Computed example of a mutant assay.
Amino acid sequence: MHIVFLSNEYPLEGVIHGGVGTFLKLLCPELARRGHEVTVLGLGDVSQTRSVTVEGVKVITIPFSKTPKVKALFNFKKINNALEEIHRQLKIDVVEGPEMSFSFIRKIPGVTYLIRMNGGHHFFSEAEKRRVDRWKAYQEKRSFENADAVCGVSNYVIEHTKNYIDFSEKQGPVIFNPANFTNFYKADPEKAVSGRLFFAGTICEKKGVRQIIKAFHQVKRKFPHTELYLAGRDWTYPDGSSYTEKIKEIIEEDIKSSIHFLGVLPNLDVPQWIESSEICVYPSHMEAMPLAWIEVMSMGKPFVATKIGPAFELVDDGVSGLLADPLDHDELASKIMEILSDEALKVRLGENAREKVLKEFSLETIADQSIAYYSKLVQNKQN
């Protein structure tokens, strides 16, 4: 089969990427290794179309339009033209993309268009209790109308998006995001630094940074040796001001020296920080299916997360991790201190977490499920 993924964030040098980019960097080379043709097509800040092949994956980046107001339409025109050219060179079987991928797609006969849901505009607007943008909502609904099929990275993201968009007749399976066992290896317990708490993610409100800092005030007083390290890019407000600088204002003077903002870490440094930490703390307010949690669990580290959306699809509370109310910093502090106080619990949580991820989130399993679904869609299209 020839599968084309629509994404602007395939992890090439200089490309900023999030969870979708990480997911593609795992799945695409695996599909190529199994003999499938894989192309990633996206827009980027390039002066002319760029095409490179990495690990058997052809990555095509075309210049994005910067024309105000109509840039979305211009960019879709470029994507449509590129897809038709790719199809002329080698027949496409499936085009896959996230929620807004097909708003203005010019569909090619015989090609299946698949949305893999990672959390779109409606989903996160509900989760973050913010106003739905009418233009983005229109694009997302139109994209679902144009899609032939829909799958999701969690049951939660599927069911909550259905509150706004009816795609029942197109609904396919839940296919989890895979774990990266190469980069996120089994951690050596001897390398854990006593009292080190670690968070990785965007430094912003929806990732629970405020709650983890408030919780740390309590943890530090009971466990004076603890230190909190936060890694990730800063969130900026519309006026350009820094979330990090704003959140520092709530840190009490006596613990300021124990809270460390590391900034953006190189990808290969993140596993080393996870390994060197005693506990990882990821108090997100909302996720579709958090890859960061899967990475921590892959390494067999004890961690505290939150009772949000897909948490119970990933974490068995009290068995493979501890879950707290995302808005209750007192409960979050209590869960952190529970692990710090109980060595046996710390070991048990880490071992169970890795065992669960090995069983349910391996790349081989996710690739098998994806290929089986692609094959079914292609067969249905042919019939």
Rank of each mutant, 00 (worst) to 15 (best):
V347R: 14
L268I: 11
W135K: 13
G172D: 00
Q218L: 15
C28N: 09
K162I: 01
T365E: 14
R196Y: 02
Q48E: 15
E128N: 13
K376W: 08
G120C: 08
S370Q: 14
F5W: 15
I62P: 10
A353Y: 10
E287N: 01
Y164P: 00
V347C: 03
L24A: 10
V209W: 12
G110T: 12
V270L: 10
K359V: 05
G300C: 00
H121E: 09
R33Y: 09
K356V: 02
F361L: 01
N118C: 04
G19S: 04
S257I: 03
S7T: 14
R354F: 12
K107P: 11
E275P: 04
G56N: 05
V209C: 13
P98F: 02
K301D: 00
N75I: 06
H225K: 14
R210L: 09
N8C: 10
L322A: 08
L265H: 02
R348L: 02
L83D: 13
N383W: 05
L340R: 06
F123Y: 15
A344I: 04
Y237M: 08
L340H: 05
N380R: 14
R142I: 06
L291R: 00
E190H: 08
K346T: 01
G19H: 07
N118R: 05
E287C: 04
S103M: 06
M100N: 13
G14L: 12
D330F: 10
E84K: 15
A372Y: 03
V52I: 11
A367P: 08
P310C: 12
F123H: 09
V153A: 05
S103T: 10
Y156F: 15
Y237A: 13
G318I: 03
P283I: 01
Q379P: 00
W273Y: 13
P310L: 03
L12F: 08
K346W: 10
V319P: 00
N75M: 11
N81Y: 02
L197A: 04
W235T: 00
Y374M: 05
D234W: 04
W273L: 00
L291V: 12
L90T: 14
V193I: 14
M299I: 03
E295K: 11
N267Q: 11
S194R: 14
S168D: 14
F199W: 01
S7K: 08
V57R: 07
V15I: 13
V315M: 03
Y282T: 12
V270T: 01
A72E: 11
L332D: 06
W293D: 04
F216N: 09
M337C: 06
V54Q: 15
H217S: 14
L291M: 09
S320K: 01
S375N: 15
I86S: 05
Q171C: 10
K246Q: 09
A127P: 02
Y373E: 07
P290A: 14
G19F: 09
G321L: 00
H2G: 01
P283R: 00
V4N: 09
I165T: 02
L268S: 12
C280R: 02
A305S: 15
H160D: 09
S334A: 15
H122T: 06
V70P: 00
W293A: 11
